[in-house]
């Protein structure tokens, strides 16, 4: 029974990645929209794009971490 709970919990934890997917998609969509409006300013914002992507992605990675912890560490 305990193992069953672990698997259900790990499955539920992966739902958090959906939120990260929305966030990362939003970041790249907004960057592309801005870059098409003003292509000359696009290259200068590339570092910020990657930074925003990394920070947003971290939250999705945390939910993967919870899932892995539930499967292998609990």
């Amino acid at each position: 029974m305990e193992a069953l709970g672990q698997y259900i919990g790990a499955g539920l934890a992966t739902l958090g990645m959906g939120g990260a997917a929305i966030g990362v998609g939003n970041i790249f969509a907004q960057y592309l929209a801005g870059a098409l409006r003003n292509p000359s300013a696009a290259d200068g914002q590339f570092a910020r794009l990657i930074f925003g992507f990394a920070v947003t992605e971290a939250l999705g990675i945390f939910s993967l971490l919870v899932a892995l912890l539930l499967l292998f560490a609990v």
């Binding site: 990394a54 920070v55 945390f62």
Partner: peptide, 13 residues
Amino acid sequence: ISLSVRLFANMLA
């Protein structure tokens, strides 16, 4: 935590 887990989890997954 986020700096290390990001790299590790991306490569692992």
